[in-house]
Design a protein around this nucleic acid. Sequence first.
DNA 1: ATGGTCGGCAACCGA
Length: 257
Amino acid sequence: MKCATFNTNSIRARLPIILEWLKREQPDILCVQETKVQDKDFPAAPFQDAGYSTVFRGQKSYNGVAVLSKKHAADIVFTLTGETEEPARFIRCRIGDTWVINVYVPQGFAVGSEKFTYKLRWLNELLIHIHDFFTPDQPLIVAGDFNVALEEKDVYDPEGLRGEVGFHPDEQALMERFFEWGLVDLLRKHHPEEGQFTFWDYRIPNALKRKMGWRVDYILATPPLADTCRDCWIDTGARSLPKPSDHTFLVAEFDLP
DNA sequence: ATGGTCGGCAACCGA
């Protein structure tokens, strides 16, 4: 069983990259973020033609999440807190025996801003949601763009970025609580080495070549799944194609049928 | 080389 996550920065602009990647890598599940498309315009047909069922929740211009899977998803929930009219940042579903949560965590704008406070609140709500609906002995994957880098090796310039949005102790402390609950960071389980980045800011010229990246995308799993994880890796292949996203694919492979 | 990010969507906002 193979599961992946990808911040598309517009699923329509990235459609050729995604279709090519699906055809080559054949994941069972792909969580995508920043689809930037309303549900009425979601490109479900090309994914169906490629053998993938889709679950999506989007809005105009911003945010938007989707889960693509070979098997149909069930028990689908789009609200993190249960309130109506939440931004399109969350999908919880079940695919076969595996529970999947796909998240696009608020970026947070700047430390001290209202958007930053909202980001911390949102991460806390996610923690509560997971705590309320699951126990760590269930097979749960939490994948997506968390917009938080955890350790020094997760950013290109820890001294310069410390305390900035995306590399702030309050964000990191909230992330730690997911691990305390029982979730395992699959990339770090298999690749503790430096230079494992999943995001390079478009606004920094030649950021990729200059290795000026961040690791802000994650695949987390509860122990029963993490124990069967054979490998987890960053796939930068799509970056050599025209019009790459600012994020990479992140992939986890499990010893499961 | 006299410019230098994207995408959405129609003037800027968000990342």
